Computed example of a mutant assay.
Amino acid sequence: MTESSHARREQCDRTLAFFSKDLGISSASIEYGSGAPDEKIELGAHCTITQDSLAVGQTRLRAMLPSESEPALLKDDLGYIPQSGSDEKVWIKSAADAVYIVTQVDGWQGNLHIETAQINSGRTKFEISDSQIRTASQFLIALTKELGAQG
């Protein structure tokens, strides 16, 4: 297992930029929780994005155990659908109130949760498009590759 020397701040800054620019979510901010922004990712880290004090999304990066052939959370959840069209493995699960994306890159697992029901977009309900989901998948692959596997 390879540790990442990148800081959580890098993960969180990139996640915030994705939520702000690619999803168009205004007034989003970073919630670090109990961890400090300058802590190293090492074998794993998470970042929560909030809007109006509500969690609207999250990224998680984690080094996979040598015994894991795919991300552990896929094992008991048949709701995740494998996607094609990418060099890396990606699974997506869509629910009425959220979209969950998982990737596996060079021994690292990346997760992205978009809590669509919590997002205040000025409309009655935030709608995420297929194009935004594809962009989210590519964002997660790049995040996992650059901060985890290559860390």
Rank of each mutant, 00 (worst) to 15 (best):
E3K: 06
S5G: 13
H6T: 15
H6E: 15
E10M: 08
E10T: 08
Q11M: 15
Q11R: 01
C12D: 12
D13Y: 10
F19I: 04
K21P: 00
D22N: 09
D22P: 02
L23Y: 11
S27E: 15
A28E: 04
S29Q: 05
E31V: 12
E39H: 12
I41A: 05
H46F: 11
T48W: 10
T50I: 11
S53G: 09
S53F: 09
A55N: 14
A55W: 03
T59M: 03
L61H: 07
A63V: 15
M64D: 05
M64N: 05
L65D: 15
S67M: 04
E68H: 09
E68W: 15
E70S: 13
E70V: 11
L74P: 09
L74Q: 05
Y80K: 06
Y80W: 01
I81L: 10
P82I: 02
P82Y: 05
Q83F: 05
Q83Y: 09
D87Y: 00
K89H: 13
K93Y: 13
K93N: 14
S94G: 09
A96C: 04
D97T: 14
A98M: 08
I101K: 10
V102W: 07
Q104H: 12
V105D: 00
Q109E: 11
N111P: 00
L112N: 11
T116R: 08
A117T: 09
T124F: 15
S129L: 10
Q132G: 11
I133A: 03
A136Q: 05
Q138L: 08
I141H: 04
L143W: 04
T144Y: 05
K145I: 00
L147V: 08
A149D: 06
